[in-house]
């Protein structure tokens, strides 16, 4: 009985801890290094929606967004240093480089500022990292492919921006998947840079030299371009894994209506920026139990549910998911082992 009482008192304390928004005086800045594609635009939109409400609800005092003019590391390092000077309590960051910003990040931590990185993460240990399990996403692509093409066959792989950690992780996952499914063989690999036009050009170039392929494994933002390249070459349409872009899902819908075309779609939701925001808020709230590396699931659509999601995506946009504070707390909890 006594134990129960202590427990319930403890629970009440915890509950009041999160409900009592004692972060109402805190200011959180968002340092972003690039805004030039649909994914980044969706990321900024989501962030704007969630933080505007958080400020109105007096959960935080301010949540300002700062975007640098170029993708350069020194510019963003300077920006972080300026944010330190501005007196922000936390910095949410999508970083231009995983390592080269560490000097500035360390200065921020030393000044008592909470740093939460996501998408483009930073390796400085004092910062928090919100990471999507890209490797599992790559592996899952092959698993799904095995469902649609049970006999196996040749695969074409479209890679993302060379030299990034994301491209590395998805590629590693795909290789792992192929190792587990020896009926598949990757017969060609091109670089699509997560961009439909680039992917279309790259696929069109390699297509004449390829044997028949049954499927395409890719990284998102490149599926529609690949489909266009196959159509232009009058080649049979393979199973193309999609990446949650509006044009990709729209094409999928058209094909499904025509002949019941089946595939799968997955990508990191741009709204993960809002999760990073809530993580920063929770840390400012005094939570000490949050691990510095948080793994969050990617956003996936199947044959059954993608059509419902399609109308909600802006023309030229990306499917997203904005985290509420409760969802963020649940996501954090899932990472505490």
């Amino acid at each position: 009985m006594k134990k129960l009482l202590v427990l319930s008192a403890f629970a009440a304390m915890l509950a009041s801890g999160t409900a009592l928004a004692d972060t109402s005086g805190k200011k959180i800045a968002f340092s972003n290094n690039y805004a030039g594609n649909s994914w980044r635009q969706a990321m900024l939109d989501s962030y704007g929606i969630v933080t505007k409400k958080a400020v109105e609800d007096k959960i935080v005092a301010a949540a300002d967004v700062f975007t640098t003019a170029d993708k350069e590391v020194p510019t963003q390092a300077a920006q972080v240093q300026n944010l330190i000077l501005q007196g922000y309590d936390a910095i949410v960051i999508n970083a231009a480089s995983p390592d080269a910003l560490n000097g500035a990040i360390k200065q921020a931590c030393d000044a008592g500022i909470v740093v939460v990185s996501f998408d483009g993460i930073v390796t400085e240990p004092c910062a928090y990292r919100v990471v999507v399990d890209f490797k599992d996403m790559g592996k899952q692509e092959v698993e799904q492919m095995a469902k649609f093409q049970p006999k196996g066959g040749n695969l074409l792989e479209i890679r993302g921006l060379a030299g990034t950690s994301i491209d590395d992780a998805i590629h590693a996952g795909i290789l792992e998947g192929v190792a587990a499914h020896p009926e598949f063989k990757i017969v060609g690999s091109v670089t699509g840079d997560w961009d439909q036009t680039t992917a279309q050009k790259a696929v069109a170039t390699i297509l004449p030299s390829l044997p028949d392929v049954v499927g395409i494994v890719d990284q998102g933002g490149d599926g529609y371009g690949a489909a266009q390249a196959f159509a232009a070459a009058n080649k049979p349409r393979p199973t193309i894994i999609m990446g949650n872009r509006q044009d990709e899902l729209k094409w999928w819908k058209e094909q499904k209506e025509k002949d019941g075309y089946k595939t799968w779609s997955a990508s990191i939701a741009p709204g993960v920026s809002t999760l990073a925001f809530w993580v920063a808020q929770q840390v400012l709230d005094g939570r000490k139990d949050i691990p510095h590396d948080l793994l969050v699931p990617y956003l996936a659509f199947t044959q059954d549910d993608f059509e419902a999601a399609l109308p909600k995506i802006k023309e030229g946009g990306v499917a997203t998911h904005e985290y509420t504070q409760e969802e963020a707390i649940a996501a954090i909890k899932a990472n505490i082992k």
Binding site: E72, P74, S97, A100, G103, A104, G163
Partner: peptide
């Protein structure tokens, strides 16, 4: 530059 950033990136000086 590297003394300040502590770590390098092949694109670090392009600007």
């Amino acid at each position: 530059l590297i003394g300040i950033t502590t770590s390098a990136d092949a694109n670090i000086g392009n600007g």
